[in-house]
């Protein structure tokens, strides 16, 4: 374990080769976030089976049409195999509500049938400890999705907590945010400006922000208002505008995630002079 910790530390500190594309640079079909509304499924007494709407922030810089297919995976795990065929043989397809959204309703007959089978199958939910106790702790529901744009394809997972109301009602997604680009004025090629999510108050619960741009360079993919060990931290990052000026406006995104699975995002464009 000592070696592993040290190795991680060294890898964390050393720079990757500089010729690799950065995660903050959007140059192809990407899913930047998936929001579940509400962000967790909670069984409320006498309220029927819970449901949520899933929406992907799926982008393609060439403005190709993007679609996202969602499925509830038949595996109950928070650490899925990356090769799990879901959507596919290992998933229950979810009905679309738009090009990049779908509805997960636990009252759906196919899902009810799966849940019943899983519960009868030796306790796949909980290792045999009892479904009620497992739901009090929270069961990870695995959602598989596939985004497509022309010939491009991207597969991913979202994990959604399913639980009883023992720990209170379902949480909510963060309030909508905006992205400040510099001082709001004009931007020149190669100019370095701050990207700052607003509003974020000093007393806000911990959040992690991710920043993306179709051109230029972002100094750090992520920022946080409070590190995982409690230190307040700057939420802004710096963006270096591209040169020469691209023909189309540069698209920028910020995604915010909280510790309860809540997600929100904002998109802005920057016009360079």
């Amino acid at each position: 374990m000592r070696l592993a910790l040290l190795a991680s530390l060294i890898v964390a500190l050393c720079g990757c080769p500089s010729n690799l594309e950065e995660q903050s640079h959007v140059s192809k079909l990407r899913v930047l976030a998936v929001r579940a509304d509400p962000p967790e499924l909670v069984f409320e007494p006498d309220a029927g089976a819970p449901a949520a709407t899933l929406t992907a922030l799926a982008v393609e810089p060439g403005d190709a049409s993007v679609t996202v297919q969602f499925a509830l995976c038949k595996e109950i795990t928070g650490t899925p195999s990356p090769t799990l065929p879901c959507p596919g043989d290992a998933g229950i397809e979810l009905p679309s509500t738009g090009p990049v959204s779908a509805r997960l309703d636990l009252a759906e007959p196919s899902i009810v049938a799966f849940a019943s089978a899983a519960q009868l199958d030796g306790g796949a939910f909980d290792g045999g400890a009892g479904i009620a106790r497992a739901l009090d702790e929270g069961v990870p529901l695995l959602i598989g999705f596939t985004a497509r744009a022309d010939a491009q394809r991207l597969d991913g997972f979202l994990t959604l907590a399913l639980r009883s109301n023992a720990k209170g009602p379902a949480g909510s997604n963060p309030d909508p945010i905006d992205l400040m680009i510099g001082d709001g004025g004009t931007i020149s090629p190669r100019e370095v400006v701050r990207l700052e999510p607003v509003p974020v108050g000093p007393g806000d619960p911990p959040k992690v922000f991710s920043f993306f741009a179709t051109a230029g360079s972002v100094s750090s993919l992520r920022s946080t208002n409070r590190t995982v060990t409690g230190q307040p931290a700057p939420i802004w990052v710096e963006w270096t505008a591209p040169a020469p000026t691209p023909a189309a406006p540069v698209r920028l995104w910020v995604v915010v995630r909280d510790e309860q699975g809540g997600t929100a995002w904002a998109e802005r464009s920057a016009h360079l002079q």
Binding site: A12, S220, R222, T227, V228, V237
Partner: peptide, 21 residues
């Protein structure tokens, strides 16, 4: 040292990094 921003590889990794052997 303190990582003020989560790492690119792992959003869970930020804050204090301390080692003593």
């Amino acid at each position: 040292f303190v990582l003020n921003r989560p790492t690119e590889q792992d959003p869970n990794l930020s804050g204090s990094i301390d080692a003593e052997t």
